[in-house]
Each structure stands twice: as structure tokens, then as C-alpha cells.
Nucleic acid binder design. Structure first.
Lengths: 133, 133
DNA sequence: ATATGTGCCGTGTGTACTAATGGTACAACT
DNA sequence: AGTTGTACCATTAGTACACACGGCACATAT
């Protein structure tokens, strides 16, 4: 049994921001503050869920997103670790990029006279029709 | 009192497609089939609503959309008429363009690993934050 | 046996939107 | 007075989704 840094994470159950999102942000923050460094092992999903008193799935969701952003690396039964280039990848905000793109697209629609309602419907259709990843 | 062509419109109350949408489509179809021609007067909103047994607002919504697409022209107390270039404007499908743009945007998001769920949330945020038309 | 990440099945609650309905009122004209 | 399009107030039912929760199972390793 290895010693794993106790991850000073505080979850606010009252906050409006989702639990999984709080987790993601705080872990990214810890990486940027160099409180954790590449190669460091993270608590297991089940363990962290127990410590923070939340469901496994919620923690798993946070881990899944962090891995997609290459901030952590899951190695199956061996555990989960901080990604070698975690710090650099933390600054890449996929979300901001998405919003920027969407803002431009939506604005062009509006200028063409398309109703917000119509935009929503078209968006929902497109997102559902073509099979997602 | 002028004679107005009786607008052979049949609304299917059971259909999944919204009533206002059925109206829009059928009027556009009538224009393309040349059953109505530029300058022809349309029934008033209230009259058509009475004939089709639906609410004024529903018909008004259809008229509003048709006017935005320059298929009809509302002249206030004088009534509503078929737009001079209605036929040409019928073929311009604003909706198709919107979907095409959205399809491209969404696909680029997906390829970047963004979850559909994340896309939805970002989309809703952007649409609500910036003031719509 | 025990632990790892991961997958699929489901439930419940809250939110947000569409679609359609109704009422009332206005200015501008015949 | 009556009609036109249009604007504002509102409610109702239905749908869709996010979020968090729970149980069960798997392969892979120590």
C-alpha cells in the first residue's frame, strides 16, 4: 500500500456548480499550483468518493474529463496518475474555445434573422441526428 | 370587402409537426405551386384562425415567420399580401443553412473530444447570455 | 481475495424549453 | 363601429436534459 497525497479538496454541496465540476477545477488548480506533480498518484475513484462523501460515478465522471484533457492518466488496475504535461494542458480551456465558436456561429444566425427558438431546434436536431462520438 | 382565395389548407391536429409549422410549409408550397401569386391578399390572421379552428397566436406566429422570410408582406390594417419575390424566397431555406453551419461546428467539437453534453451546456449558456434579437 | 478503472442497467429531482391556448389593448385606417 | 397587424400579460401540458445517486459486472493485475 502506497502513500498518496491526501488531496486537499473541499466540496461545497450547496454550491450551484456541479460536484464533478468542482472536482475537476480543484484538481486542475492543484496541478497549476504545483501541489501535485507529474507522476504523482491520485486517490482511487472509490477512495476519493468515500473521502468526499460522494458517489463513485460522480468522481469517475470528473476523472474521465480530466483524462480527456490529458491532465491525468488512468492506468487501469495500477491507478491514476498526473499526466507528464499536466500543467500545460491545464491552461488549455476546451470550454472557452467551444463558447467562442458558438458565440460567432449564433451571432451570424441572429443577424440573418433566425429566431433563437429556431436555432435551438436546429441545434437539437443536428446534435441528435448525426451519431455522436 | 374583397374576395380572397380560400386557401386550401389542411391542418393535421394529430401530426407531430407543430401547427404553425404546417401552416408555414403549406403556404410556401402554395406559392411554389403558383396557386397564389405575388400581390394576392391572404386571409386575415383572425379569419384564418377561425377557418382552421386554431388560435390567433398560432396563425400570427406562422405569418411572422413567413414575413421574415419575405414570402408575405404585412401591411397593417390593409392586410397581408404575397411578397413580389415570394417564389424565389421560398427556395431560400434559412433552416438548411443553419443546420449546415451547426453540423460543421459540432463535428469539430466532437473531434476535439468535447462531449455532446458539454456542447449542449455551452450552447445553452451562449444563447442565453448574449442578448438575443 | 482485493483493488483498479470502466461499462451498462436503472431511479429521482429539478430545470428549461416548445407549443398552444386565452385575454386585453393599441394605432391606423375604411 | 369595425378590421388590420401587433404587442403585452398570462397558463397549461409535454418533452428533454443535467446531475447525482445506486447496483451489478467485467478484465486485469497484485
Amino acid at each position: 500500500m502506497e502513500h498518496i497525497k491526501p488531496m486537499q479538496i473541499s466540496i461545497d454541496i450547496e454550491s450551484a456548480t456541479p460536484l464533478f465540476s468542482q472536482l475537476v477545477m480543484q484538481i486542475k488548480q492543484a496541478v497549476q499550483d504545483e501541489k501535485v506533480k507529474p507522476g504523482d498518484q491520485l486517490p482511487s475513484i472509490r477512495q476519493l468518493a468515500y473521502d468526499l462523501d460522494m458517489n463513485n460515478k460522480t468522481v469517475a465522471k470528473a476523472y474521465r474529463l480530466l483524462e480527456r484533457d490529458s491532465v491525468i492518466v488512468a492506468k487501469g488496475y495500477r491507478g491514476t496518475f498526473i499526466h507528464p504535461e499536466a500543467q500545460a494542458n491545464c491552461t488549455i480551456d476546451l470550454n472557452k474555445w467551444v463558447r467562442k465558436e458558438l458565440t460567432n456561429t449564433i451571432q451570424s444566425f441572429r443577424q440573418a434573422g433566425v429566431t433563437d427558438s429556431e436555432i435551438r431546434i436546429a441545434f437539437a436536431d443536428v446534435l441528435n441526428q448525426s451519431t455522436g462520438v
